[in-house]
Each structure stands twice: as structure tokens, then as C-alpha cells.
Design a protein around this nucleic acid. Structure first.
Lengths: 289, 289
DNA sequence: CATAATTCATCACCATCCCCTATCAATAAA
DNA sequence: TTTATTGATAGGGGATGGTGATGAATTATG
């Protein structure tokens, strides 16, 4: 069945349109015996007769007509798909990996720009932690990543896309308790993440001894946890602005000096022009916009 | 481009799913060089690279991924279409030709029965005059026709499906004028149609000399014309019952004795089982039901 | 670090397929 | 009858697709 080629279907469709094998042969720039042979092959492949003799003509059988009308839209779609070649502009599916913070800060803007300027390009987006993102990139599971922290890995080409400020936040009740000397637990991303490292550095700035540290691999969940009064977290301003304004979160300690850097990255040996163009555009993003 | 065979697409899809050429080869019960060759052929046909080396693996390019995701639904549809073979029951497109009167009397019922009992069968319906219908049938433009008048043509197999009564109808105003001796024109289908012949026969029954005869090739329009007071027509009861009840039409002269016969017909040498089954079912129809 | 295993490319060889030209048989039109 | 049209058939040449054996590059394993 799989030995059917596209020209078999094309031949069937042209015979159906023009009525005779000879006309289809002319239309397809080939000889009439070729058309006969193609029909014979197609019939052999699908296992039932498509034509029936009627005088000197060949008429489609009932099932043959069914096949024609089934194949007509399919053929059109196939032609469109396979001919989508010389089309101007970039086309293709690019897999983007990004961390939660970058996703919240500039991904919608990036996606919108791509949709607008490169309509042929489709983005597949996956959210992960920095370490996973790098692994995906090197393992060619992703084409382009937006990730936190300075990355200096051989085989990776990066461009900084800005930094966001961090703040010690908690529920308003937690802030009040802290003001009275309480020592709430600190929540953070897993140990290997850049934000966790920044959090440890920021703890050094503080006079009090470091309290218990708990981790969660999801920033949104982290926010929910501290908003529920379960502790304090060092969170990016970009993701908490709204909750802060709404009073669901409050500043617990003074903000540290450190900011968290973000970068766009692709494989160093990347050669695909679409990916390179997307990297160029990603490099122009500004987290602190 | 048309030299692409279905197995080329199938191969691409399995490589995309399984990740390696070797795995695809095993899945497709073939050797690995075959897979390499198929990919090479496919790339040559579409004109751009689908894969890129990465270590010892082959990775889809951006455009390659695009093609995969474009082809996935197409492939599924093609498989479904081409494999629609051993499916139980009849399948296919049958072209039905019918006259207006038969269409109005029993076509909806017939179509509903086919939809219900033979869901794989699609009907293409065309409305024409009897002469055209016969020509279509013999010329294999139609597979089955429902037509008026006794047909005895060699090469055609018929079955009676009943008869309908005819009445001389006109607008109520016309009927009133006739009662006072007026001689309105008579409207009818074209000369070669069975209804026209019946009309002429019915005129013989009448005492008065035949008035002017005008023709129109469409019964519905004919009804509209006489309902607008433009004359009298011999019309089938089946199509005028409603207008008569609503008072838009009225009986002008006494009804003639003749009724108009209807038949289902197929080519005598028809062998397609689907058409034969539909003919069997059509033979059971009753116009006078 | 050396070895083994995996992955895809290449090669030679063979079978099959596809297309062409030339011709024929059947039917329809003149 | 003659002519034209339609599709089938036959034979040969060239392209295509398939296989198994082998090789190069990379990655896993001891």
C-alpha cells in the first residue's frame, strides 16, 4: 500500500477531471501507456478496481469516485505542504526552552514579535530549570533557551538579555512577625539553580544567622507558598509586582544588591538560519524593560 | 516532487518518532541503508535538508520538523482513506439523477433510507428532465435515475415506482375566469417530456379547442407562473397539495384520467453491487404513498 | 585509556519498476 | 467503409530501491 507515489494520486485526479487516460497523459506530459500503467499499479496497491470499461472509455467505479473525492483535498494539502519550499521567509518549528522567570518577563513579547515578523515560524515552548535547559540545548532537544545566570559552557553561544531585581518577600503577616524578631523559614529554588546561589549570597548580607532553607522547583508555587504565610523567599520583581501591589505579598527584609542575570543561548555550532535569526531577536530582548 | 512515495513520508514520520534511522529501519522491517536512501531521496525531492548530523545521531532541521508536523495529520488521513477497503458494507459515491416530480415525491425519503442503512454511501443528486436523465444514464454520467413515463430503451433496466395523479390547476382568479368562458393559455414542460405528452392527451378529453401552449423546463417555476394568474397547467398532485390547500392554486378543469408513471432505472449491464443495491431499494419506493 | 557498541554512510550487486516507442484491438464517428 | 479516438500490450533501456558487507565517527563501558 505504501508503494503508492504521489504521481499515482495525481494521475487518478487528472483522469477524473479530464475523463480520458489520453487527456491525462497529455496534461501530465507523459505517454498514454504510462497512465495505463499507473492506474494498474494504483489498483493493485489499493486492492480494488477503480475503473470499468464502457465502450472505449474508462469510467470510474463507485469506489473509484469515492477515492477521488477523498483524495482531492488530501492532494491539495500535500501539494501545499511539500511545495512550501521556495516560499519567502523563514519557516519551521523552533523549540524554545526557558525558565519561569524569563517566561514571565519577556516571553509573551518575544512570541508576539515572532508571530508578527516571522509568520512561518512556529514555536514549541518548554519551561524548565536552568540546568535542564542547558542539557536540552546541548542534547539538541531545544534550539534556543532563555535562562538565568551567567552561563559559560563551551559549545554554547550566549547573549545577555538583562537582569531583574530581587526582593525578600513574604505574606504581610510574615513581614509583621519578622518585624517583631521572628525567624521564618526561607524558601528557594533547588540548590543547583542560579537563583538559589544568589539567595545564599544575599543571606550573607544579612546579620541574622541563616534559618532553615526549603526548596521547590517551581517559582509560581514558591510565590503561593510564601503568600500563604509559610515563610520568606527571594523573588524576582518581575513576577511579584502584581501580588505586591495587591497586598498579597510584602517586603520582609531590605532588598539585596544582587540582581539576577538572564541570557539567550544557542549551540555554538548552530547553523540553521531560522534559529540564528531567532537568537538575534532574542538578544535584543530586555528583561528590565 | 511527485516521485515521493507514501513510504517516504512514513519513513520520515517513524524516524521522527523513534529518533534514529536504525530504529525506524527495524520498525519498518527493512535495512538501515534503505532508510538512509529514502531520506536522501526525500530530501532530493523536496529540495532542502531534513536532517543534520549531531555526533552520531541525525537531528531534524527546523524545516524538517515543520514537514513532520505538517505530514502527521496528512498521513493519518491518507492511511484512513486508502485503507478504507475491507470495511464492511458498501462504500462509494453514487450519482442519482431524478426529475423534479420524483424528487419532490420520494427523494427525501430515499436519501434518508440510504443515509440510515448504507452510511458509507454518498449520493450525488442531479435534477434534470427525463430525456436528459436517460442520456446521462446511458452516457454513464449517472448511475441510477428516477424518471417519469414508461421507458423502454434497450440497455436500460427499469422498475416501476408508482404513479401520481394530475390536475388542471391555476390561480383562483384564473379558475373564476374560466368558469365564465375564458380561455387561458396552457403552460407545460418542454415538448419532449412525458408530462407534456400526457398534457396533450388530457387536452383531447376536453371539449374546447386547444389554446396556446407555452413551456418552461422547471416544474416549480411552472407552478409559480400559474399561481401568478398567467394560465393553467397540468400539475402533479404531489407537488401542489400544499399550494392547493393554501388557496394559492385552484382546480380549473376536471382532472383527467391519466396518471403519470415513474420508474427507477439503471444501465442493463450495471455490475456495481452498490448501484444494484440502491436500485433494489429504489424499486421499493412508492410515489403514491 | 582501550575496547566495545552504536549510528549512519558508502559500495557493489541485483531485482524491480517506470517510461518510452511502436503496435494492436475495439469502438465511435465520418 | 473509412477514419479517428481510446486504451491495452510488448520489448528494451534506464532509473530506482533494496540488501549485505564494510567503514568512519562517536559514545558508552570496563
Amino acid at each position: 500500500m505504501n508503494r503508492i507515489a504521489l504521481y499515482h494520486l495525481e494521475t487518478l485526479l487528472w483522469i477524473a477531471r479530464l475523463g480520458t487516460f489520453a487527456a491525462a497523459a497529455e496534461r501530465l506530459n507523459t505517454a498514454q501507456p504510462t497512465i495505463s500503467a499507473r492506474v494498474r499499479e494504483l489498483e493493485a496497491q489499493i486492492g480494488y478496481p477503480l475503473f470499468r470499461r464502457e465502450g472505449r472509455r474508462m469510467l470510474l467505479t463507485v469506489r473509484g469516485r469515492q477515492l477521488v473525492s477523498d483524495c482531492e483535498p488530501l492532494w491539495a494539502a500535500l501539494e501545499r505542504t511539500l511545495a512550501a519550499d521556495g516560499l519567502s521567509g523563514a519557516r519551521g518549528i523552533v523549540r524554545i526552552g526557558t525558565g519561569e522567570i524569563a517566561a514571565a518577563s519577556c516571553l509573551p513579547e518575544f512570541v508576539a514579535a515572532v508571530e508578527r515578523d516571522l509568520p512561518g515560524v512556529t514555536l514549541d515552548i518548554g519551561i524548565s530549570l536552568t540546568a535542564q535547559l542547558l542539557q536540552d540545548l546541548l542534547g539538541a532537544t531545544c534550539d534556543l533557551v532563555l535562562l538565568a545566570g551567567p552561563v559559560a559552557s563551551p559549545g554554547v553561544r550566549t547573549a545577555s538579555i538583562g537582569a531583574v531585581a530581587l526582593e525578600w518577600l513574604g505574606a504581610p503577616a510574615t513581614a509583621a512577625a519578622v518585624a517583631q524578631g521572628s525567624q521564618p523559614p526561607v524558601w528557594s529554588l533547588p540548590r543547583h539553580s542560579p537563583l538559589h546561589q544568589l539567595m545564599l549570597a544575599a543571606m550573607e548580607e544579612r546579620p541574622s544567622p541563616p534559618p532553615a532553607i526549603r526548596t521547590c522547583n517551581n517559582v509560581r508555587t514558591l510565590i503561593d507558598i510564601v503568600a500563604a504565610g509559610q515563610g520568606v523567599a527571594l523573588l524576582p520583581e518581575a513576577m511579584t509586582r502584581e501580588a505586591l501591589a495587591a497586598g498579597r505579598l510584602a517586603r520582609v527584609w531590605p532588598s539585596p544588591k544582587g540582581r539576577i542575570e538572564f541570557q539567550a543561548a544557542i549551540r555554538a555550532e548552530e547553523s540553521d538560519p531560522v534559529v540564528l535569526e531567532l537568537f538575534r531577536r532574542a538578544s535584543l530582548l530586555r528583561m528590565d524593560g
